[in-house]
């Protein structure tokens, strides 16, 4: 019987099949199906309330599907969620950090949870990657929004995951911090990681993502792997969401 790892080599890394999610009577995702191969950078777009964040939460194992299946690396969520979690890192528009701990203490805490080495040298190297080594002993509450976001990326990378999920990571960042974040995103993508990023910033997507999936009212209305310019993407986005809205 092939192991999930060997199956991972043959199949797509992420497979979402007929996935639906409802909260009470409110249906947020409806029969969403797509797969993502190793190393692909996917931009997940959609208007507010289209189900982007819910989809990411399902992929991260934070929510339970109402119906349908999600496989990451051959393991199914939620039944094999612990194995899936070892392969996933999540960066949200919220920092998911503890403001009254230092940057190093935050990373040490998450290193213990992920059962990876929590020695200062290892963690300092990680902080160096995101340009925060000099602030290793500063409390997170003294960090700017951009610095918190970079520390969030270090936290998400602590267990060297194959898949990185970004939920509107540019929210609240100024231009300089957004550019710095884009550099880190390109580095992560260049290192062969599979990335799914939700965003409202259509201008940034073509320079980062190799594929665009557009959700509207919980349904995939566009799945496009062809490179587009920012202006083409914006007009395509408007067209598909308007068409879907009028149906």
């Amino acid at each position: 019987m092939p192991s999930p790892e060997s199956m991972m080599q043959r199949r797509s890394l992420i497979e979402v099949d007929n996935l639906s999610k409802a909260y009470g009577f409110s249906s947020v995702l409806r029969q969403v199906t797509f797969s993502v191969p190793h190393g692909q950078f996917v931009g997940l777009l959609g208007p507010n309330g289209s189900g982007k964040s819910t989809l990411l939460r399902l992929l991260a194992g934070l929510a339970r599907p109402t119906s349908g299946t999600v496989h990451v690396g051959g393991w199914q969520i939620p039944h094999e969620a612990d194995q899936v979690k070892r392969h996933i890192g999540l960066v949200s528009h919220r920092s998911l950090l503890y403001p009254t701990l230092t940057a190093l203490e935050n990373l040490a805490f998450f290193a213990r949870l992920y059962d990876v080495p929590a020695q200062p040298a290892h963690l300092l190297a990680l902080l160096d990657e995101v340009g925060l080594k000099k602030r290793a002993h500063s409390l997170v509450r003294t960090f700017s929004r951009g610095m918190q976001q970079r520390l969030s990326i270090a936290r998400a990378l602590i267990h060297n995951p194959d898949v990185l999920l970004f939920d509107e990571p540019h929210t609240g960042l100024d231009q300089q911090a957004s550019d710095m974040l884009d550099t880190l995103l390109r580095q992560a993508s260049g290192a062969g990681r599979t990335i799914i990023m939700t965003t409202h910033d259509l201008q940034r997507v073509p320079s980062l993502a190799q594929r665009v999936i557009v959700l509207h009212r919980g349904v995939v209305v566009l799945d496009d792997s062809h490179p587009q310019s920012s202006s083409d993407l914006i007009s395509t986005f408007r067209r598909v969401t308007t068409e879907a809205g009028s149906q």
């Binding site: 934070l62 194995q83 070892r86 999540l90 919220r94 920092s95 998911l96 950090l97 998450f110 949870l113």
Partner: peptide, 11 residues
């Protein structure tokens, strides 16, 4: 700060 999510996605 949503840190409960970071706890819950840990394996």
């Amino acid at each position: 700060n949503g840190s409960i999510d970071a706890l819950l996605i840990a394996p």
